[in-house]
Design a protein around this nucleic acid. Sequence first.
DNA 1: TGTAAAATGTTGCAAATGCAACACAAATTT
DNA 2: AAATTTGTGTTGCATTTGCAACATTTTACA
Lengths: 209, 209
Amino acid sequence: MTNLFENISERNMLKLKRILRSNSVKYRKNVNVVSNVNLDDFIALIDSGSVQLIYTDYEGNKTVVEELGAGEIFGTLTSSINSEEISCITKEDTQITYIEYEQITNDEIFKNDFYIIFIKNLIRILIEQMNRRNTRIELLTKRTTRDKLLAYFKQMAQEMGNKRYYLQTTFTELADYLSVDRSAMTREIKYLKEEGFIDIHGKRVIINY
Amino acid sequence: MTNLFENISERNMLKLKRILRSNSVKYRKNVNVVSNVNLDDFIALIDSGSVQLIYTDYEGNKTVVEELGAGEIFGTLTSSINSEEISCITKEDTQITYIEYEQITNDEIFKNDFYIIFIKNLIRILIEQMNRRNTRIELLTKRTTRDKLLAYFKQMAQEMGNKRYYLQTTFTELADYLSVDRSAMTREIKYLKEEGFIDIHGKRVIINY
DNA sequence: TGTAAAATGTTGCAAATGCAACACAAATTT
DNA sequence: AAATTTGTGTTGCATTTGCAACATTTTACA
């Protein structure tokens, strides 16, 4: 996973942050980050900790659009945060660096040769996030909980490079991610075990397909 | 919707395309575009026409991840096309310009002042596509066909700026987009009409909520 | 360390949904 | 203009699913 300042020296990173007029803010757990910000379009870089982007519809239903950890970015542009239906909640103590979107192409920055690396990193991060969205869409378009689970476990096995691995999430989170009822999911996992598709004990997963 | 060469003069665009070593290819309808390409990572710009990004899973099930029209981009990086589960089919006669990803940051291009505009356009396009993915995820995470439809019609009304508008898609396409059974969707739309949430005649939609 | 909060597993039941199989209309192709 | 393909509307039925309401275990934290 790409870091926004990958392949940029500590020295140049500090210079870059200054030129970009970035500023860093620390938050406690379970805080709505975006309500504190009054910039125009911005990019927010998670220095440490993690956040959830949560969409709330007109009826008050909430859906977690994405979970982001250290090194990842979000912003008004990538998630229409300014549309006030999206909120951004810290899952733990978190530090975030804000960069105004316009600063990314300011005059001063353009003169530095590490700028090109920065831009490439930024583009690559956007692309990685897009791929993660695509992956989730593939799962969400499966019609049955069974198919979602089978595809998910398969994806994970591919990512881990092994048909035996440990789940990285809780089952509750997984149900949210797949957008299915948690108890119904538990039931389906039981069936999948009984039919021999998978073995699961605790967080240890083994897939047989 | 941003165009990759927005705010760049015709003259500079041609220069840019040359520097980027881009090449354009014409395709007929219903052709798999990506199978013809043997580049490394690339960005493909749709000059005219439209394509569908289709994901095929290990069982042969197909899901349309995204539909793209003129001015939009796709590529190995934004959609893991090289993972050979994704194919890209033209929906009509289509012209595509290919740009190798590495060329985007080549030495020559960096000297031109319109380069910065190009990069900003590219980033903005990526961001727009991300927003479209987010929007779809919001819909797909709704648990019932009813909620998907209500949210979709509402979104469309917001986009159009009017509670009365014409559907831009066929109902068959809409069912695919929302990932529900078409006939079950038709049934649900009937109920929504009967209960007065919406009026639909042909492609004319009026929402009452 | 004790208590509160979160996660997990289970089950009955009603509701929603996919599926299949139609008929018919509209659009596209030859 | 005829033929083929694609889109639309309908319905019965079996299956899947969400929901609610539990008990129990595990984790977090004051």
